[in-house]
Every structure is written in C-alpha cells, then in structure tokens.
C-alpha cells in the first residue's frame, strides 16, 4: 500500500480477484493431516453432491479447502478456538450418535450428509449451532467459487462491469435509457402474483 496522499485512489473497482492494493494476506492455517481429513469429510457431507448440475469434483473441494484455511486466521479468537473443535466433534458424530464405528470422513458424502441432518435437528442448541457454523464455513467458500456461480447462472462480474459503464455514462452527463432498467418489470411480477379477484 505504502504512503498515499489520497484516500480515494480510483473511482471504480477493477473487479480483480486478489486485487493488488498492497495488502498482505496472512499465512494460511496449516492443520494436521488428521484435521485435513476431517475437513474434507465435512466438505463432502456439506457441499452438494454431483446431482442436478452441482459442481462437485476434486478441484472444487480443494478450492473450498483453500478458501477455508485462508479465511481461518482472520476469524475471531472464539471462532479460531472453536472451529477445529467443532470439526472434530462433527467428524466423530457417527460414533457418539451410535450410528456406526467409522468417522464422518470415512462415510460416503450422502451418508455423512444424513448424519449431519440428524445432528442439526438435535434437541441441544449447542449441537445445532455446531452444524450451523460448519455449514457457514463450507458453503460460504463453495458458493463463492466462479464455477459454482456459472452453474447458478450468477454473473456478478459481468453485471458489475455493465453497471460501472452505466454510471460512467451518467457521470458524463448522458441520460439513462429504457434498456438500462432492470428486469423483471412490475407488470411481470404482478402478473405472477396470486389473483385475489
């Protein structure tokens, strides 16, 4: 970053991944091999499987893992202390739930997912919170991947480039046009509403 005389260096975003604004990223968390296996077990159980067009190959799971260990050092101290513990508790959940003698990491993803479903509906709020935390850690990373964006039909970068260009036009004194309006229109939305008549 270095010394700068101006807080507003540029008007618009370049939309680059890992932008070079001089900010130094923290070293990734380096979990033990046992913890790595447990994390991959959770990723498999929490991410969607291959069904229905969901991206689910090894490179996707590796990318989720990398995002998780990159984010970990920035988490609150409570989260940094708690997350490894939560991962272990959930990894051992098939055993302490007396559902089998193998850990989550050894189960096929569908079975692991089903075990987590049951933990998530536990009568103990703490256990439900564990699943919520694990889901948030994994799904934030999974649904942030460009390959998943593509599968969802979600193109934030393309849309933002279009909007940045529109704002530049407005700043240059041009007026907006009908085509700049976002769809669907109110008429379309009302047509789909429940007919009260």
């Amino acid at each position: 970053m270095g010394a700068s005389d101006d807080a507003n260096v540029a008007e618009v975003a370049l939309l680059d991944r890992f932008p070079d604004d001089g900010w130094v990223r923290a070293r990734r968390w380096s979990p033990s091999q046992g913890m790595v296996n447990a994390i991959y077990g959770l990723i498999g159980a929490i991410c969607p499987g291959r069904s229905d067009g969901a991206p689910a190959d090894k490179s996707v799971y590796d990318a989720v893992f990398v995002q998780m260990v990159q984010t970990f050092p920035y988490m609150s101290r409570l989260a940094r202390m708690g997350l490894p513990w939560i991962i272990r508790v959930l990894d051992w959940s098939p055993i302490w739930r007396f559902e089998g003698v193998v850990r989550l990491q050894s189960l096929p993803p569908e079975q692991g997912s089903a075990v987590l479903d049951r933990v998530a509906s536990s009568r103990f709020a703490l256990l439900r919170t564990f699943v919520t935390a694990a889901r948030a850690a994994v799904l934030t990373a999974y649904f942030d991947l460009p390959v998943v964006h593509d599968a969802l039909g979600y193109d934030p970068v393309g849309f933002m480039r279009e909007r940045i260009a529109l704002r530049r036009r407005l700043e240059a004194g041009k007026v907006s046009e009908q085509t700049d309006l976002l769809q669907p229109s109110p008429q379309t939305l009302l047509a789909a509403a429940v007919d009260k008549s």
Binding site: S4, N8, V9, P19, D21, P156
Partner: peptide, 12 residues
C-alpha cells in the same frame, strides 16, 4: 486502506 479499485464480488 482498501480503495474502491480493490473491491470485488468475492465474499471469501
């Protein structure tokens, strides 16, 4: 200090 130019839509 993260200027506007560094913003992007990637949550993680």
């Amino acid at each position: 200090h993260h200027p506007t130019s560094s913003f992007n839509p990637y949550l993680a």
